[in-house]
């Protein structure tokens, strides 16, 4: 119970449920199945990008190029489709593009030792530039119908992509929780020196994180391209910052080693839901950013105060010599 209360996922989920409840009371239409599904559907891109970003943040890094990677992958997807490639190959090309973009980031951070924020800020410019160079700066429209189709598929009234994303989320959650090698992300971010002394491959773990961030951004590109049916030059613009915000909101700490895929997803869902809720509450959508920012700040502030309080408790407990019993009691 105590552990549950301590977890940020719980706090944000609670906040989300409360806000949804409040919005629903104000405007009962909000409770309709369709509106809820719509929110999920709209959040998919950010959820996927945030999941990839999570791996990087877990290892105590940061990647501000994921939005640009998504844009670049979308351009590759659109261009290859319009060249007449089958959907499968085009999607594969997009995912490979995203992954390679991630590998380049990984190479710079782990082997050239460029600080992550500098490396990915540089590639942010490079990937955004490349994406416009490929298309000559114009939007990619008139995509073949077959890329838009999956978006129309559904099961139990829930769109195909929502199922795919949920499946990916479940897979990531399972892997990061249960697979030993995936736990390296946590160990490396938590105590890099300790991980090294106990024999973990620290650099390759970081390498894998940036690569995964690229792959997930590419998957996000496939989803939103299918959803909207064209690729604009502003595709996924600013998503790098939103993905970081989603992670922080969902309890993935920038100091490394803390957070879960579920948290990252809930954070992303929350940021998207704010938009829909504001509309249902009759607040114009332009207030989105202000609310998102204020909530992010409020959450990190509350988190800071809670940690302070816990620290004071710990010190007092130690003075009283009760530390022996603390670990045993659940």
């Amino acid at each position: 119970m105590k552990r549950f209360l301590r977890s940020r996922e719980a706090l944000v989920t609670l906040l989300l449920v409360l806000l949804i409840g409040a919005t629903g009371l104000f405007n009962p239409n909000f409770f309709k199945f369709d509106s809820i599904v719509e929110i999920f559907n709209a959040s998919l891109t950010l959820v996927l990008i945030s999941l990839g970003e999570m791996f990087v943040i877990l290892t105590r890094g940061i990647d501000v190029s994921v939005g640009a990677i998504a844009g670049l992958s979308a351009v590759v997807l659109g261009t290859t489709l319009n060249l007449g490639w089958p959907v499968g190959f085009a999607v594969l090309a997009a995912v490979i593009t995203g992954t390679l973009a991630g590998v380049f980031n990984a190479f710079g951070v782990t082997f050239l030792r460029v600080p992550p924020i500098i490396m990915t800020l540089g590639t942010l410019g490079i990937y955004r530039g490349l994406m416009r160079i490929i298309t000559g700066g114009s939007w990619i429209e008139n995509l073949p119908q077959n890329i838009k189709e999956p978006n129309l598929w559904g099961f139990l009234g829930v769109p195909f992509f929502v199922w795919v994303t949920l499946a990916l989320l479940a897979l990531t959650a399972y892997v990061t929780l249960r697979i030993r090698v995936a736990r390296y992300f946590y160990a490396v971010g938590d105590n890099e020196q300790g991980a090294f002394l106990l024999g973990l491959p620290v650099r390759w773990t970081q390498f894998a994180a940036y690569t995964l961030a690229g792959s997930f951004a590419a998957l996000a590109a496939v989803v939103f391209t299918s959803q909207i049916g064209f690729v604009s030059m502003n595709a996924a613009d600013g998503f790098e910052l939103k993905a970081i915000a989603a992670n922080v909101l969902g309890g993935v700490s920038l100091t490394g080693g803390v957070g879960t895929p579920l948290g990252a997803a809930v954070g992303a869902l929350f940021l998207t839901a704010v938009h829909s809720m504001l509309i249902f509450l009759g607040v114009p959508g332009i207030w989105d950013n202000a609310f998102a920012g204020a909530i992010l700040l409020a959450v990190v502030y509350v988190d800071y105060r809670v940690r302070q309080a816990l620290e004071v408790q710990r010190r007092q407990a130690r003075i009283r010599g009760e530390t022996h019993h603390q670990g045993g009691a659940p």
């Binding site: 970081i244 915000a245 922080v248 207030w287 202000a290 920012g293 992010l296």
Partner: peptide
């Protein structure tokens, strides 16, 4: 994190 939050807040 803080200036990311205010980046959104001030823009909003």
């Amino acid at each position: 994190v803080i200036t990311l939050g205010t980046l959104f807040m001030f823009a909003g």
